[in-house]
């Protein structure tokens, strides 16, 4: 897309002990792009995200963020260099209030133009509940806090890991609605999802993973739903 992509993953292989979770995966993501990674359970989507944020030890290949190899960098430093993660299962700090959870994203991140007002405008319910402990929130509201926390870090790249998992359709809609807005503010997004249609609807490009390999990639408009489904299930 661009001459030097924001994130470029080249021939990445990842091992968990003896098990090879990813094989020769190559993915690029340009500035201002929304890229979606789809794949069934166990296809290697989570391994991919974990590897990007430095949570996996044994890897081969390269992961470059703004040209710098991320491998061997401590998670906290990767995050501070402008990669924010909305982790699977939310992973809020349960004994912190909503506001405190958001503040941690803001303080740790780079200063930018997304502020608390923006997050509260995206998710008005959070403003009402900002003094409550995050563990007292519903699953959907917790997911909003997790997204808000990542946004407040004003990252260059936001990684979203299964943000729709276990949530009601209306809430998923609310969450996905902000993706184009966020992209327009200059943040690139990597969306990892099991839900094909939801994920392809917001993506500029996509990659489909099967058993740790990319078996299909392109623009959502260029492929039929049928093709995607076939590759998704490896039929």
């Amino acid at each position: 897309m661009t001459a030097s992509p924001l994130l470029s993953i080249e021939n990445l292989s990842v091992y968990h002990g003896q098990f090879r979770a990813l094989t020769n995966v190559s993915i690029t993501l340009g500035a201002g792009e929304v890229v979606s990674i789809i794949g069934a359970n166990g296809a290697g989507k989570s391994s991919l995200l974990k590897t990007i944020v430095g949570q996996v030890d044994r890897t081969e290949g390269a992961i470059r963020f703004e040209g710098a190899d991320l491998r061997g960098t401590h998670t906290a430093d990767i995050v501070r260099s402008g990669v924010a993660l909305v982790p699977e299962g939310r992973r809020l700090f349960p004994s912190l209030t909503v506001e405190e959870n958001l503040e941690i994203g803001w303080e740790v991140g780079r200063r930018g133009d997304i502020g608390f007002d923006d997050v509260y405008r995206f998710f008005p319910v959070l403003k009402e509940k900002r003094r409550q402990l995050s563990r007292e929130l519903s699953g959907g509201q917790q997911q909003m806090v997790a997204v808000g926390r990542a946004l407040l870090a004003n990252p260059k790249l936001m990684l979203c890991d299964e943000i729709s998992l276990g949530l009601a359709p209306t809430i998923i809609k609310d969450l996905y609605q902000i993706i184009p807005t966020v992209r327009d503010r200059g943040i690139s997004i990597l969306v990892v999802e099991q839900d094909i249609s939801r994920s392809l609807a917001v993506a500029d490009r996509f990659y489909c993973l099967l058993e740790g390999r990319v078996n299909l990639s392109g623009r959502p408009a260029d492929v039929t739903h049928d093709t995607v489904v076939k590759h998704y299930f490896g039929l």
């Binding site: 906290a76 924010a84 740790v108």
Partner: peptide, 10 residues
């Protein structure tokens, strides 16, 4: 609360 999560948010 969680060292691992703390790492994940930087």
């Amino acid at each position: 609360d969680s060292v691992a999560t703390a790492d994940l948010v930087g």
